[in-house]
């Protein structure tokens, strides 16, 4: 037990470069597998949270764009949604990496007035940025389709009532469409978020190379399966972690769902839960 504590100190943050540099090579214990794979999960959570957060806002823009009368706004939104929903993530990662390595490797400085940020195009070929960008577009496209569907199914009575009160334009969107859209889309959006967290495990697996043996949960599972030649321990450990992660996501989104539906009576709430059954 105490040795497992030492393992946790050595490898608990190994995936982000803190702790022992050399990974365990021989006489690998179950503890080492659980700790390192758990350490890799930090990356899955990082990719998931950032992509869902930024992807959410972009998806709203795409959804509104797809619903817009103006072709100039509609067609780009539709194209992004079509390409990212229509092709496998596996292939998207491949193309993103191949494209990013072609970019000239330079440093760019952003002058924000009060602070100067410097960035390097080199970062785009790293999973933490390049992979994140793909996931961002991916989740934005999927969520946009969900929100688009929700916008279309906001009861027309609500919109007519709003117009009768003289609520139009942005105000109509924010005060009438927005809350209903979120409420209607939320169960599907929960599914999308779960899928996105699952999709994070593909980054190191297919698209982006791992640097300094820092990777996600699946990367370490792969490493152990390779060192111990026994796939039946590390992969189920990853599966366990993901089940836990999924339960947490379901809980958080469930709380949000309750908040969104707080004005409805219990019976109607239940109905919403099941009437929309759209996976990804």
């Amino acid at each position: 037990m105490s040795s497992c504590w030492a393992t946790l100190q050595d490898y608990g943050l190994r995936s982000i470069g803190i702790g022992e540099r050399i990974l365990p090579k021989t006489d690998i214990t179950i503890c080492e597998q659980v700790v390192l794979i758990g350490s890799g999960l930090i990356w899955n959570i990082y990719f998931g949270i950032i992509a869902v957060f930024f992807g959410f806002w972009f998806s709203i823009i795409l959804a509104v764009g797809k619903n817009h009368k103006l072709a100039l706004l509609r067609i780009p939104s539709e194209s992004i949604i079509f390409v990212f929903r229509g092709s496998p993530l596996f292939i998207q990662f491949f193309f993103a990496y191949e494209f990013f390595v072609l970019l000239p490797k330079v440093g760019i400085e952003f002058d924000l007035g009060f602070i100067t940020l410097s960035a390097e195009t080199r970062w785009l070929t790293r999973a933490w940025l390049g992979g994140l960008i793909v996931l961002f577009f991916n989740t934005a496209a999927y969520s946009a389709e969900i929100f688009y569907g929700a916008i279309r199914s906001v009861p027309s009575g609500e919109l007519e009532a709003a117009e009768a009160y003289g609520i139009t334009g942005w105000s109509k969107f924010w005060r009438i469409i927005w809350p209903s859209m979120l409420r209607l889309a939320w169960p599907s959006y929960t599914n999308e978020a779960i899928f996105l967290f699952h999709a994070t495990s593909l980054i190191f697996f297919s698209g982006f190379p791992a640097w300094r043996q820092s990777g996600d949960a699946l990367y370490y599972a792969n490493y152990f399966s390779d060192k111990t030649f026994n796939p039946f321990l590390p992969y189920p450990i990853v599966a366990m972690y993901f089940i836990l992660l999924t339960l947490v996501i379901i809980f958080i989104f469930g709380v949000a769902n309750k908040y969104l539906n707080r004005h409805l009576d219990v019976e109607q709430r239940a109905k919403i839960q099941i009437s929309i059954n759209i996976l990804r």
Binding site: H198, S201, L202, L218, A221, P231, F232, P236, V238, A239
Partner: peptide, 17 residues
């Protein structure tokens, strides 16, 4: 179960099993 487990992970050990 599958809502909780990424399909890649599943595919990596289930066929062998």
């Amino acid at each position: 179960m599958v809502r909780g487990i990424p399909d890649v992970v599943f595919f990596l050990f289930v066929p062998l099993a």
